[in-house]
Design a protein around this nucleic acid. Structure first.
Lengths: 220, 220
DNA sequence: TTCTTGTCACCTAGGTGTTAATAT
DNA sequence: ATATTAACACCTAGGTGACAAGAA
């Protein structure tokens, strides 16, 4: 038995049409893919991993005027199919079960030649994350039991479109509202008094919206 | 074969009489204990760990007027003897050998009731870090071979005095000069132009030395 | 036009010695 | 006196979306 953490948040994103940024250097997913696991043999070793399968054979584009995704043609050639092993693998069932398993080291890239072991995806294509549990069979000829030792789990609410820049403004707003690292882009809210106050007074409490970049010169 | 990394830096500290801070919450060591390992069986599992043995049965105090350590009596009751397993343990020899093994997650505490698995030491006592490699023997009754599967390594230049605040000012200065996290306490030096320039002009380029704390008020 | 890239200010998270206050 | 604690400014390290410029 496997249970998706933060299902409520995943549902909110999925309702709007989740988008995940892909960059050359690799970008984490948000929400982070996290699961709670039950029913393992506490004393046996398991390997945990994730991969991503195309949801269909199409390429998409976003129609801003109608705020909806449209099919833009057939899918680009599939990216190299990679797998992300959870870095704690292998570990005992007891270890995996005693806390939430988080794939926060997993990064998505659109660089077909990526050299960092990140997951390679095509931008403007839709994907379904999958979670796999491999029982490390101590028996000889354990490869014969590969099928029964391999279990996959799939949560449809985690599907998403890979993008290099957010398309749906509501997705952007939900990311900003829910990802702690994007707090700098939040509008003033009742929480404003919680922000770090050890700042020079020249820094405003709410980031000015839509203004141009002002690059500060080094005085020297 | 095991080789101590940053031996030159360890030697510098050891020459002055290394001090390591212990706190209730736990403090990392600096320099960090790091080793390069050779001669493992690449395909076998190993567990790596560290512990700390008292260098003698004495308690010390620092004489500021003579800038030297003096014996202040017999050692306090020994703290609970703990061990720090390298968090990547167990892993294959190939994994351990292909890069420097760093014990940067190890923390020292003076809290006898510590609940975080940190190494407990008595302040104002001297210690010798030890590094251990345990070969995970696949044979049955492997406990019979425990002795031959257990190898210890000891670098005398890593010995230190546990303290709650630095005693020797030269140790403080060497820590500040060599630990990146203490850069804020460095005097102006030729590297000053490398510092982040995206700062309000009200912040000086060199921290004022010896001034009192000025707590900034939140304008609410 | 549409999509991608690189840089940036702004955050989170946590490792430093300093200092003043407290404990012994 | 001597030793410890807790709060703090200042860092390292790295995760955000915004934006302008570039590419297709």
């Amino acid at each position: 038995g496997v249970q998706l953490e933060m299902k409520g948040l995943w549902d909110k994103f999925n309702q709007l049409g989740t988008e995940m940024i892909v960059t050359k250097a690799g970008r984490r997913m948000f929400p982070t893919y996290q699961v709670k696991i039950l029913g393992m043999d506490p004393a046996s070793d398991y390997v945990l991993l994730m991969d991503f399968t195309p949801l269909d054979d199409k390429r998409y584009r976003y129609a801003f005027h109608s705020s909806s995704w449209l099919v833009a043609g057939k899918a680009d050639p599939a990216a190299p199919g990679r797998v992300h092993f959870h870095p704690d693998s292998p570990a005992k069932g007891a270890q995996w079960m005693k806390q939430i398993v988080s794939f926060d080291k997993l990064k998505l890239t659109n660089n077909l030649l990526d050299d960092n072991g990140h997951i390679i995806l095509n931008s403007m294509h839709r994907y379904q994350p999958r979670f796999h549990v491999v029982y490390v069979d101590p028996r000889k000829n354990s490869e014969r039991y590969a099928e029964e030792n391999f279990k996959s789990f799939l949560f449809e609410e985690t599907r998403f479109t890979a993008v290099t820049a957010y398309q749906n403004h509501r997705i952007t707003q939900l990311k900003i509202a829910s990802n702690p690292f994007a707090k700098g882009f939040r509008e003033c809210d009742p929480d404003w008094s919680n922000r770090n106050s050890n700042l020079p007074l020249t820094i405003p409490y709410c980031r000015p919206r839509g203004g141009p970049h002002s690059k500060q010169q080094h005085p020297g």
